[in-house]
Nucleic acid binder design. Sequence first.
DNA 1: TATGAATGAGATTTCATTCAT
DNA 2: CATGAATGAAATCTCATTCAT
Lengths: 202, 202, 202, 202
Amino acid sequence: MKKELKKDQIIGAAGIVFSQKGFHQAKMDEIAVVAKVAKGTLYYNFSSKSKLFAATVTQGLNKIMAQIKEELESDLPFMAHLKGLISSIVRLYISHGEVTRIYANEMSSGIDEQVLVEIKGVRKEFINFIEDILKTGEEKGYLRPLPHHLSALAAVGMIDTLCGNHLDDPDRDRVDLIIETVFTILSIGLVAEKNPTDSQIK
Amino acid sequence: MKKELKKDQIIGAAGIVFSQKGFHQAKMDEIAVVAKVAKGTLYYNFSSKSKLFAATVTQGLNKIMAQIKEELESDLPFMAHLKGLISSIVRLYISHGEVTRIYANEMSSGIDEQVLVEIKGVRKEFINFIEDILKTGEEKGYLRPLPHHLSALAAVGMIDTLCGNHLDDPDRDRVDLIIETVFTILSIGLVAEKNPTDSQIK
Amino acid sequence: MKKELKKDQIIGAAGIVFSQKGFHQAKMDEIAVVAKVAKGTLYYNFSSKSKLFAATVTQGLNKIMAQIKEELESDLPFMAHLKGLISSIVRLYISHGEVTRIYANEMSSGIDEQVLVEIKGVRKEFINFIEDILKTGEEKGYLRPLPHHLSALAAVGMIDTLCGNHLDDPDRDRVDLIIETVFTILSIGLVAEKNPTDSQIK
Amino acid sequence: MKKELKKDQIIGAAGIVFSQKGFHQAKMDEIAVVAKVAKGTLYYNFSSKSKLFAATVTQGLNKIMAQIKEELESDLPFMAHLKGLISSIVRLYISHGEVTRIYANEMSSGIDEQVLVEIKGVRKEFINFIEDILKTGEEKGYLRPLPHHLSALAAVGMIDTLCGNHLDDPDRDRVDLIIETVFTILSIGLVAEKNPTDSQIK
DNA sequence: TATGAATGAGATTTCATTCAT
DNA sequence: CATGAATGAAATCTCATTCAT
């Protein structure tokens, strides 16, 4: 009870600091100050900086994923379903900026292999989730046959980048425009509709 | 002359070490060893680790951009032009993994603001380059009107992620499949061609 | 009653952990786990780590000394008495390895002066006990006149080292051989009996 | 050249501090102060505290052993040889107190296994050296047949303890008395010469 | 009495940077 | 120009001890 509260308090602070500074620049001292606990308390609850980082990221991503799934009404027509999915992801990515930025920026080295594996696992789960939706779409004849894994990665990459950019400079692009753009590209691409070049496309 | 050679020698080593370890995990000692010079020589040529990093990344990215532009035959039909562009980017991203991985992973904090700005400048230049091509495509009626900046970011994000993934696990996906997938999504999207749901979109 | 039981339980655990890890490497956390009490309980019963260490060692050494005295039949002929003494010491040293190893290894710094003094007191008491026996032997004409204090120290040092070695590598030397060797050296030395070099001695 | 000098300077300081405080209580900060170098210089020359400790002890012990061997005139009659040996060991033990105390007190845990093994190796070498001399004595008929390994350990243990005691309280016993006592016990034991109890022995 | 979460002073270690040679 | 020994600020992590429950 008490313990879980304190852990959440720490994870909250860690999320803020890690996302602002990145893993290496975030100092345990600062996290302790933000969390309003002593440095020792950090280590009493999480055995290392890496472990705290892992807890922060995985808990954050899991929360986002759960929320995405929750927001997704499954009885909508497929395309509406897809649009809802994109909308959820984009909005949650942006509103949980402190987690998603970490994710996008700190997957490189300097973190124990073990922790890295844990985090990548959550990411993979997420990709698989998208992949499954795309697969269903193809099976039902809504989507053209493409390598699902790559399509899912492409979708996520697009969203990552657009959301990351939005967080860097929030005034520039409106969120609904981002959603619209992602959806359009993903669904019908960039090519103008009555374009004679269609035939050129291989 | 001599000096430039030594600098290149150092930048070469730095590229290897930075891409393997990331900015913070890369140690000046190791770069010196790999470059086969003394540590002092690093500082004789670059005033700080950050500056060396900036030099490594900007030189690398500029080289890649130059190569992309060079590979691009401008008198092809637009779609072929676009496909050639994607193909160039993907192949060069992957073959210059040591630079592009740095870029994808280390843009977060821990590097002097000044250096970060320099690197982001190169990135922005690149995005603009893509943006211009898309704008031209729209003006000529090949592409549907969409916010160019977002489209360009989406395209680059897609490619970043797919190439990053390929570098992590090179056996999984063939490069030409990546190119094909990116091109298909970007041009005509995921939606199956004669799909009645078209009307539902938007 | 209850309290004494708990104290003994803690001292038992402390003996095990201190002897395995040494004073500095033994952690209060581990002692608490081994003793199956909470860490706070350690401090409820012993005001500090040093005090717990002192209690562990002095209780252990006192127990050993009491047992040695008990095993010693005083109406035996002197040399049998001496041999019995050595036998007792060696066997008890080895069977109470967890205490005697502490003693041999951890008498150096890092423990409060006060506690150190307490422990050294027990040791001194032990040396005095041996010294008294040797003095009696000399008075009765069994032993040659030598500085008793040094002889006692020499005897104890010999036994310490041989027993410590045995505990490190129990398979190497049989206990009875150790007893035999100590007794032979202490009583008649290393020099062969009818050796003409006797005259050279001294 | 320069480097070896600095290393020696550090080892000298480390010897002083380690012997006064013991391994765990000795702080790298203090060693640095005593050595008059920055803390980083310690680590530039020795990769860890343990390694510095190992270097300090093994260098010290090797120096002592070398000196013992050097002082030993091999063409003396055997008993004089033995006495010279004891005399050398005792005097060198005492005059190199800062090393031998470390050895006697800090062989317990808390030091990397690897370093411990290195130090124990030097000790073993020393024991073997004594053992060989005793073996020679027996082969030449000067010494009674006893397990050499145990005899050597016993001799060293005796000397360790007496010298350690002398260093704790230098005023108490004169060094030559210590040498005399060790020699007497080792050679002819404690038993008075024309003692009728000889027959009782064993 | 007993607990165990919380503390914080202090230790080892790292590494970018400097500068005398 | 080049070197590499030396530096010291700063970071992570430890653990004996305390105290509210």
